[in-house]
Amino acid sequence: MHHDNKGFGTRCIHAGQQPDPTTGAIMTPVYQTSTYVQKSPGVVIEDYDYARSANPTRKALEANLASLEGGRHGIMFASGLASLAGCIHLLSSGDHVLLCDDVYGGTYRSLDKVFKQFGITYTRVDMLDLDATEAAFTPKTKLVWIETPTNPLLKVVDIAAVARIGKARGAIVCVDNTFATPVLQNPLSLGADIVSHSCTKYIGGHSDVIGGVLITNSDELGERLHYIQNAVGAISAPWDCFLLLRSTKTLHVRVQRHCENAAKIADFLAQQSQIERVIYPGRTDHPQHEIAKKQMRGGYGGMITATLKGGLPAARNFLERVQLFSLAESLGGVESLIEHPAIMTHASIDKPLREALGISDGLVRFSVGIEDVDDLIADIAEALG
């Protein structure tokens, strides 16, 4: 049954899934198998011959996530970084990647330490500056990698504008939509060729599974990425796919609460004397608030970044004192997390580069959960002392 014309919440719950034909089970079964029996050599049911190539649980999830992004093809990987690697495998030695300057540390590390060995080069560019972005293209630029809002500085890149520049140069444009989620932002409708998610974050939403996905509308890219998924083999396990299908059913309601809570907490932080600066795309003092308003809908996400006065000692003291906010890497779970990018998630980025970006030692990143917001605010107030 196709649900592509239905509302977002309906698609969260139904897209890509139908009751199990053999029993009528309403939930997609976990097809915990490595191979499938063939009626005669090469005669297989659908395309099921080997479970790396296809698995019914995974296929249901891929169809579900594709629908949520308004795409035709979903390709699941074992992690967000495996999705990135899937994308890079579209390239050849000598090709060039244009990379958003403020990205998840692991994305940077993958390009800087792994793919560089195979002759794939990259340039980091501040994509808020469209002239600089255009100037950074070379004849070998084959992929543009946008992350918005960025991690951890929550810069908001104009997807439509950068995609236009990329398309004019014949490059594939990919948007890491992890922070915004499909609820708030659909990059394919803004001109991107591929959307990437770390499903570990909001899509999973319960801090209990690792996964990644690429979504595209292009049949050609879909075919190539499925080929890479099978040939390289970094696939998502059936149980993980089952957990993610369970999670997408509440994605729309969870993200709505993340947004409501984060908006209130950002406003609270902005009033505290110990806080030097609050970065939240939903606040009118965010430098790209107008772009966020234009390309995001229904909220501005659950992530807040704030700089504490007093640098590292102040930040460390604060992070040791919070109780409801757990000090941990990752984000997007129902529980609130807090972390120190310079020491934790972005340690793989060299210090001079971190500081040039503005990832200072007083910078703290909040992943606001879906607890009662008054309790979260009380926790912050207490920790600020």
Rank of each mutant, 00 (worst) to 15 (best):
Y50I: 10
A342E: 05
T216I: 01
T248P: 02
G233C: 12
N64P: 08
L81V: 10
L81R: 09
V103Q: 10
G333P: 07
S236E: 15
L128S: 14
L154N: 14
G301L: 07
F115L: 00
V173C: 07
R169F: 04
D176V: 05
I377L: 06
P21W: 04
A306Q: 00
L190Y: 09
L353T: 15
H197Y: 15
I75D: 05
N261M: 02
L225I: 06
H73K: 04
A136E: 09
L251C: 10
I370D: 09
I349V: 15
K351Y: 04
G358S: 04
A66N: 00
D374P: 05
M127L: 08
T121K: 04
S236G: 09
V195I: 11
L221E: 03
L143T: 03
A270T: 00
G222Y: 01
M127K: 07
E382D: 11
S53H: 06
E46I: 03
E62F: 05
D267E: 15
D219C: 00
L188A: 02
E339L: 14
A266L: 03
Q256T: 11
G385V: 03
Q229F: 03
N55G: 03
I265Q: 02
L312K: 05
L353A: 06
P352E: 13
F118D: 11
Q38T: 14
G211H: 08
A54E: 01
V162S: 09
I228W: 10
G119Y: 08
V97L: 11
R224C: 06
I172E: 01
C241K: 03
I291E: 11
L331K: 05
T181H: 02
S360T: 15
V44D: 07
T250R: 12
A168E: 13
I215P: 00
L98V: 10
G333I: 04
L319K: 01
G302Q: 09
I349G: 06
L363G: 01
G94S: 12
G299N: 03
K140H: 11
S218P: 01
T178R: 01
E220C: 01
H286Q: 14
Q229M: 10
F242C: 13
Q272G: 02
G105C: 10
R257G: 03
H346I: 02
E220I: 07
Q288I: 11
Q288K: 15
E329D: 12
E220T: 12
I146H: 09
G80H: 06
A25S: 12
P152V: 09
I210C: 08
A15W: 04
T107K: 03
F115P: 02
H286C: 13
G7S: 12
V162D: 06
I279L: 13
V156H: 09
T107A: 13
V209I: 08
E290R: 15
I377W: 10
L251F: 08
I343V: 14
T121Y: 04
G332I: 08
R354W: 07
S189L: 02
D219N: 12
